[in-house]
Amino acid sequence: MRSLNRTKIRSMVCRYILLALGTVIFTLPMIYMISTSLRPNGALYEYPPRFFPKWEALTLENYCYILSQSKFYLNFLNSVFVSLTTIVLAAALSSAMAFVLGKFKLKANRLIFGFIILSMIIPGTTMIVPQFELATKLNLVNHLWGLIPFYIAWVIPFSTFMIKGFMENIPGEIMEASWIDGANVWTVFTQIALPLASPAVASVSIFNFLTAWEEYPWANTVINDTGKRTLPIAIAGFFGQHQFTQWGYVFAMSVLTLIPVILIFILCQKFFVQGLTAGSVKG
């Protein structure tokens, strides 16, 4: 008994050490980013380079600069608007589709499901060129509404897939009961299915929010005006100046962009795990 306990403890300690070590090394880049954002831009070419700046050299001037730019708030609001609109509309559309696919046996089900799987295999970034032609025809270039429909289109397949699984788990008897009570499809959807599937809808929405918040290639293609930019383009734009690369500003802006994301993640991390694992373990 004693030797079993000792090996167990040893292996546990080993695990903890390995995990701790791994986690620290893993987060080094992020820590470096934060430490650089707290350094004055002039100190960037100091030699030898330091991981942490000297205590006296710590400064918030980069953050002050970024926060003093009115464009930053505009870009932030643009990102918020695009992301929120995307998740609301995507949640509505994909839960509706998941409801029908999961609960009703229509002949078109297989076809629609096939389309969904197909769209999941070919991500939106591959299709940038045809999408751009479409956006041009619809006159959506250089508008925030040139982003939203496409983001929704990109996330619907995966969201529908996830929510469908949940919908299928709703016991048929509950629905039978409501049919008998004389409810119509819409009532069943909104009053029964949606509330029961809300964990799935929530976790899917969180994923979609992150997708829309950090998306770069499509936003960069469609948006021209500085006033309509979303945060990722603003950060990349800051970086694009060849003669002076002001890493301090770039990273200060990056940290400010990451704060909402990390907050949401930490608060809702349960939903994340649920969402991810629901799809993968079944598969």
């Binding site: 041009t136 021209n224 100046q241």
Partner: peptide, 25 residues
């Protein structure tokens, strides 16, 4: 006047693309 600053090479590319999408300045 709505002035937009692009990096030199990007400005050229944006004009090319905007010509096709009829979104020229």
């Amino acid at each position: 006047v709505n002035a937009v600053s692009h990096e030199w090479a990007e400005l050229h590319d944006k004009v090319l693309v905007s010509a096709k999408s009829e979104a020229l300045p």
